[in-house]
């Protein structure tokens, strides 16, 4: 993959900038596989229903033959409509999601971070005809995905869209994190003030990240990280031994974070 961009960065008119993660070609392939399965399933279902109706129509005198032929024609049209409009209708109704994309938490958005217009949905789905070439191997679409920085198939390029990853992120609760243990540093507010004064925003951020993400770390890495952080903060703080003795490195950093983030209001 050449010079891939992993996230779409958007700057709003309000001056806020945010990043949206772009979906990988692999997750898009999986979503496509689900969608193809759904299309095949719907086609089989429609054909079966029409076959049943044709069987019933056979028994109708005089017009039975016409009804059977009408059913065959309807089946051909239905297959075409399902294959063509499945993506268009689902992406329109579900704001850029098909069933496959919903399952894999992907969503089509405008490449400026805006919501999709119907024309964009229509164009990107019509271009599927080109993307799936040769035959239905998606070679053109796949190559385009691999070569473009934002992983866009030709349909996305023409419609000005891209597919993003939608992770349901919930707001973390800090009550549980910060109020669980008593902070022994709070007995010395003047030293706490000095610690806050000497800590840069970057250092504070690293300490907070270490606490919030501690459960994601391997035990050895966790010990090593907190030992290094504690060593650093012990050097810049002046808390006496009587309140730090017996504190684990991780508890030390927890106290540091609590001191920095909870005690000062703006």
């Amino acid at each position: 993959m050449l010079g891939k961009t992993t996230a779409l960065e958007v700057q709003t008119a309000e001056g806020v900038s945010f990043k949206v993660p772009i979906a990988s070609p692999f997750s898009r392939c999986l979503a496509l596989a689900i969608d193809i399965a759904v299309i095949i399933g719907l086609t089989i279902l429609a054909t079966t229903v029409i076959n049943i109706l044709q069987t019933i129509a056979e028994t109708v005198p005089q017009i039975g033959r016409i009804l059977i032929d009408f059913g065959t024609g309807a089946a051909i049209i239905l297959q075409f409509v399902i294959a063509t409009f499945y993506g268009i209708i689902t992406e329109w109704l579900w704001s850029g999601q098909t069933l496959g994309k919903r399952i894999f938490r992907l969503r089509v958005i405008d490449e400026r971070g805006l919501s999709l217009s119907f024309k964009q949905i229509l164009i990107r789905n019509i271009f599927r005809l080109l993307d799936m070439l040769p035959s239905t191997f998606y070679l053109i679409g796949g190559t385009s995905c691999l070569l473009t920085p934002k992983c866009q198939r030709t349909g996305d390029l023409a419609a000005g869209t891209l597919v993003i990853r939608e992770s349901e992120v919930s707001a973390p609760s800090y009550n549980e994190l910060l109020e669980k243990e008593e902070n022994s540093f709070s007995t010395m507010p003047h030293l706490e003030a000095r610690l806050r004064h000497r800590t840069s925003p970057d250092e504070a951020r690293i300490a907070l990240d270490a606490i919030t993400r501690r459960n994601e770390l391997q035990p050895e890495s966790r010990l090593l990280l907190f030992s290094q952080l504690a060593k650093h903060f012990r050097e810049i703080s002046e808390f006496p031994d009587e309140i730090t003795v017996g504190l684990s490195d991780e508890q030390y950093i927890r106290n540091v974070v609590d001191t920095i983030f909870r005690k000062v209001s703006i």
């Binding site: 949206v20 971070g113 805006l114 992770s167 951020r205």
Partner: peptide
């Protein structure tokens, strides 16, 4: 500069913006 909440708010703002 807290990562988790920032990420959460980014997603929220992105969806609302869109």
């Amino acid at each position: 500069g807290e990562v988790e909440t920032t990420r959460y708010l980014e997603r929220l703002v992105a969806r609302a913006y869109s």
